[in-house]
């Protein structure tokens, strides 16, 4: 086990990078949810908060799957679908922000 492990700990570092990114996504999603339900609770606000929670769960799922794949000592490269989903979640959060700002 120890000799198959990369001495540079690349899979671990990549796993931690996913964790950091998920954490950042959590902060942004919380900001989005707080912004959506600010003063008065409206149907649109609740929908926005629910959607941002959904986006957050999506990002969490992508990150979790990738973190599990990185458990192996020689993991395969990230799939294009994973990369696109992660970027799509970011764009979706930006879209909510635009909806809130305008």
């Amino acid at each position: 086990m120890t000799q198959t492990r990369d001495p540079g700990l690349q899979p671990e570092r990549t796993r931690l990078a996913w964790r950091r990114t998920t954490l950042t996504c959590t902060v942004v999603a919380v900001l989005a949810g707080k912004q959506a339900i600010d003063d008065d609770i409206t149907a649109a606000g609740v929908t926005g908060a629910a959607l941002s929670a959904l986006v957050w769960v999506g990002f969490l799922a992508v990150g979790h799957r990738r973190i599990q794949a990185l458990e192996s000592p020689r993991p395969a490269a990230l799939s294009l679908r994973g990369a696109l989903l992660a970027a799509a979640c970011t764009v979706a959060l930006a879209g909510f922000a635009v909806a809130v700002v305008l």
């Binding site: 950042t24 996504c25 942004v28 900001l31 989005a32 970027a87 970011t90 959060l93 930006a94 922000a97």
Partner: peptide, 10 residues
Amino acid sequence: ALALVGGGFA
């Protein structure tokens, strides 16, 4: 990108 979006919210 997420930090920039968070900045927009802020």
